[in-house]
Amino acid sequence: MRRRAKADTVRQKNATAGEGGHSPPEKCDGGRRRTQSARRMRRRNLKNMQNNFVKIIKKAMPAVVSIVVSENLKEIPKNLITPAAQKKLKKITDNNGDIEVGGGSGFIVDKSGLIATSKHIVADPKTNYTIITNDNKKHKAKVIFRSPHNDIALLKLQTTNYKLQTLKLGDSNKVQLGENVLAFGSPLGNFPNTVSEGIISGLHRKIKAETDLKPGKDTLKEMIQTDAAINPGNSGGPLINMKGEVIGINTVAVANAENISLAIPINPIKKFLKTSKHNR
């Protein structure tokens, strides 16, 4: 009886300790700890990314503007509107007799009041342009540059002695697929200070689009593709990387497609700014 009891005790110890009397490896506990650690790491990375987004948005937003395009009602050819329509339009004109006919977005690139935007927004030399800054103040502006080869333009604020915040311009030649980006603008003209997030989903894209009042379409090359939402009214706004640098100018969302938006690379604007400063 004693030998049998002793043998049972030894078997119980072996069963508890494992083969050879050693403790079994804690595979389950180790795997669980690694999984929990990976989850904590992902949560920290996500939180850091969100915090970075917030910092970039807070810093960039004061330099993003809305552009209102208006035309004096008297300048509109009478054969284009009926007398009844003209009466209705008079009711929504401002004190100067101007009526809003379009709009878009832009961003301040120089403290002297230079604003970058898309050329197709400011294509008509007969229209008037009003800049609405982030503090909701209105400023008159004039177009000083329309690119003959690209959908980019520059306006100059007519307001003087006004404190402006600018955006840092990056290098669009260094843009990589998969980069996180933020698109700023005023979609539909009714939702100022809007931001959407996405990634760089394509490079060196080429499309044909109308960028001015001339007949036919221009070929836009080397465009940056993103899945960040760009809607009518977003055109001219900045596309910003995770360093807070502008790498592109939001231009167009591809019709009949989802999450395919395109931006003009920022380097052509940088080149013009460098030349214009040299000539001042």
Results as ranks from 00 to 15, higher is better:
residue 169 L to N: 12
residue 38 A to F: 09
residue 120 H to K: 02
residue 112 S to M: 14
residue 276 S to M: 13
residue 228 A to K: 04
residue 81 I to Q: 05
residue 227 D to P: 06
residue 225 Q to S: 01
residue 228 A to V: 04
residue 52 N to Y: 05
residue 79 N to R: 07
residue 180 N to Q: 14
residue 47 K to D: 13
residue 83 P to I: 03
residue 262 L to E: 01
residue 14 N to W: 12
residue 78 K to Y: 11
residue 192 P to N: 04
residue 49 M to P: 00
residue 63 A to I: 04
residue 268 P to D: 05
residue 3 R to M: 04
residue 247 I to S: 03
residue 274 K to E: 09
residue 254 V to N: 15
residue 261 S to M: 02
residue 164 L to N: 07
residue 54 V to C: 12
residue 88 K to I: 08
residue 6 K to T: 07
residue 116 A to T: 06
residue 107 F to T: 04
residue 78 K to M: 11
residue 32 R to H: 05
residue 127 T to E: 08
residue 26 E to D: 07
residue 75 E to S: 12
residue 275 T to D: 14
residue 228 A to C: 06
residue 273 L to D: 12
residue 157 L to M: 11
residue 270 K to H: 12
residue 113 G to K: 00
residue 21 G to E: 06
residue 175 V to K: 01
residue 143 V to L: 11
residue 251 T to M: 14
residue 8 D to V: 09
residue 23 S to R: 15
residue 226 T to G: 01
residue 153 A to R: 00
residue 258 E to D: 13
residue 32 R to Y: 10
residue 103 G to F: 00
residue 109 V to G: 15
residue 200 I to Q: 12
residue 93 T to P: 06
residue 3 R to T: 08
residue 84 A to G: 07
residue 135 D to W: 10
residue 139 H to V: 15
residue 234 N to R: 01
residue 220 L to V: 04
residue 161 N to F: 13
residue 236 G to P: 15
residue 243 K to M: 13
residue 104 G to M: 14
residue 121 I to M: 10
residue 17 A to H: 13
residue 193 N to F: 00
residue 178 G to M: 00
residue 137 K to F: 09
residue 5 A to W: 14
residue 32 R to V: 14
residue 20 G to N: 06
residue 31 G to I: 10
residue 155 L to P: 01
residue 1 M to Y: 09
residue 92 I to P: 06
residue 247 I to R: 05
residue 180 N to W: 11
residue 91 K to H: 13
residue 50 Q to A: 15
residue 113 G to E: 00
residue 114 L to E: 04
residue 262 L to S: 01
residue 60 A to I: 15
residue 159 T to G: 01
